[in-house]
């Protein structure tokens, strides 16, 4: 029997997170595990991410694929959240001409907004379509006033970002960063805490006591487009049942 059933997984992951943060950064490897059997396609993760990172129109870090398969009457519907896979062999890192995209010691693929030149080579290189470009759009453009929800700062990469004309992250490539600013403050990523099906798990793979390590060892997990051998850090439970 899995330990996950004994205690609320959020509390368990919170404890795992604290334990991981006590280790040096290079000793922890963040991974995400998504249990597709539990995802109900509510899109709460997508919206929470949008709100957490103050994402403008055209920028999304976490989508949820809605896949219908089969023929009537034997039909089914699956939901597959798709985000940056933080690949160990990330093609986006290779193609970035100015080393604005790097892989941190803890495995997170990050973007230095103050270096990124906005060439968008990484967008075309990502086989998961996980990257989007901030083209400087606003939801409340051409209205009497920009609304607060899109003029407030975001705290990505533990810095304060105000989207203003001519300022980063406008013009930059953007993507999921596992909510670095939250996890390094001892908080779980926004998508994890808002998942009402408790389908998204996050933690340190190197910690054998962590929930994610337990899930990875006890379930048959798969990763998206494994044939590309990019070694993604996002694992799925139940992916083999989905006709992608």
């Amino acid at each position: 029997m899995l330990t996950e059933t004994k205690k609320d997984v959020l509390l368990r992951m919170q404890e795992d997170l604290k334990r991981a943060l006590n280790k040096p950064r290079e000793k922890r490897k963040w991974v995400m595990v998504i249990d597709l059997r539990k995802c109900i396609g509510c899109y709460a993760c997508t919206i929470a991410c949008k709100a957490e990172n103050v994402l403008p129109p055209g920028v999304v870090y976490r989508r949820v694929l809605d896949i219908e398969s089969g023929k009537y009457p034997n039909v089914k519907r699956d939901f597959v959240p798709v985000l940056c896979n933080h690949c160990e062999k990330a093609p986006c890192v290779k193609v970035c001409p100015v080393k604005a995209t790097t892989i941190r010691e803890d495995g997170i693929v990050d973007i230095d907004y103050e270096v990124c030149i906005g060439c968008r080579a990484c967008l075309t290189a990502c086989p998961y379509g996980a990257r989007t470009s901030d083209f400087g759009q606003f939801y409340t453009l051409n209205t009497p006033k920009f609304q607060d929800y899109e003029t407030r700062p975001s705290f990505e990469y533990k810095k304060r970002w105000l989207r203003k004309k001519g300022k980063s992250p406008i013009g930059n490539a953007r993507k999921c960063h596992f909510c670095i600013h939250r996890i390094e403050s001892g908080l779980l990523p926004a998508c994890v805490i808002t998942c009402i099906g408790r389908a998204t798990y996050f933690g340190d793979k190197e910690d054998s006591k962590s929930l994610v390590a337990e899930l990875l060892s006890k379930h048959k997990v798969k990763r998206l487009k494994e044939e590309l051998k990019l070694e993604p850090r996002v694992y799925y439970i139940g992916l083999e049942e989905v006709q992608l």
Binding site: V93, K94, V95, C96, P97, V98, K99, A100, V115, C116, I117, G118, C119, R120, A121, S133, D134, F135, S168, I170, G171, N172, A173
Partner: peptide, 26 residues
């Protein structure tokens, strides 16, 4: 002109990524 941050084009010379074809092309 296509760059999102045109004013930072000089980074191509200062922070050249040898694994990037785009950087080498310059």
């Amino acid at each position: 002109l296509d760059l999102g941050r045109i004013e930072r084009f000089y980074e191509l010379f200062l922070r050249t990524n040898p694994s990037s074809v785009m950087a080498l092309m310059i």
